[in-house]
Write a protein that binds this DNA or RNA. Structure first.
Ligand SMILES: [Zn+2]
Ligand SMILES: [Zn+2]
Ligand SMILES: [Zn+2]
Ligand SMILES: [Zn+2]
Lengths: 151, 151
DNA sequence: CTTTCCCTGTTACGGTATAACATCCTGAGG
DNA sequence: CCTCAGGATGTTATACCGTAACAGGGAAAG
């Protein structure tokens, strides 16, 4: 799944550490470990799979959910609502509205930037709403699954 | 929550019955009952609240989840992924990509049509994906909650 | 040193959803 | 009428997802 490994992984983690420090927060062991697992996976991972993969005596659910909440808050990860899963953000550390393409066949996801914020903002305004966050998840078939190469 | 009642509710249910028949499907008792509960509520409802409200000797989870799946498939209801809740569609019976404004304070929701399908379609194409469904959920504050009239 | 604040560990629980299988109903065809 | 096939439901049990509540620890400020 195009996950990171070796030096690229180390570099990503170092960079994350710097960004976290710049935000006056702490990249603690459990936060760093969960981010590492997400980066290695290179795709959506379920919370309980993170718990199982955590290693080192394991982790209990609250540990992992707290780390995920932190990573999401700082822009290192996103939650995929329609999959109950989490994924590392390729723009690690920039908080932003995320949008995803999700393959219904193999589960592959791509983070996209369709540029819809302005239209949603306008629709919100028309109903008197102020906008504070946006979830966009598109379901479809990835190139491999369209041609039968899936799985 | 602007739910339907009395004649308006009966009319909506009759219309649903006709649409279902036109699609060569059946609006069975449990499906009709769940749709009725969603229409009465006039807003998002949790599956287990539907189960509790079902009455008539009650319903077990699979009964209600099956009805919800059916209603979603035929365009009578949508699932709100970020709330784990379900809501009747004001365009009952037209299958379409739904988009929602959700108040973070009071939970009020509005179904909108921001017209973003074209842009998402283009982004999907750029990644080789074919598009088959779209979930858009915007979080913010409704007019009442913005001015402190909430709750 | 002590206070404060944040982060963590642990237990236990509640909410969400589905698997698996038996049963029943309905409508088409003989 | 009878039978058969497909879809819908009933039932039990279980798996999965997420959080409440409280105790403990560690760094940094005063
Ligand atoms: Zn992102
Ligand atoms: Zn695929
Ligand atoms: Zn709708
Ligand atoms: Zn509100």
């Amino acid at each position: 799944m195009a996950g990171l490994a070796g030096r690229a992984l180390d570099a990503a983690l170092s960079k994350a550490g710097a960004r976290v420090a710049a935000a006056d927060e702490r990249l603690t062991d459990s936060r760093r470990r969960v981010l590492e697992l997400l980066l290695k996976a290179g795709g959506p991972v379920k919370a309980y799979d993170l718990i199982a993969a955590y290693g080192q005596g394991g982790a209990k659910p609250p540990t992992v959910y707290r780390a995920l909440e932190f990573l999401e808050r700082l822009g290192f990860a996103h939650r995929l609502e329609s999959l109950n899963a989490y994924v590392a953000c390729p723009r690690s550390g920039e908080v932003h509205a995320a949008a995803f393409l999700i393959c219904e066949c193999c589960g592959a996801t791509v983070e996209i930037e369709p540029g819809v914020a302005d239209r949603v903002e306008r629709a919100a305004g028309a109903h008197g709403y102020s906008l504070r966050g946006l979830t966009l998840e598109a379901r479809g078939l990835c190139p491999a699954c369209r041609t039968g190469d899936g799985h």
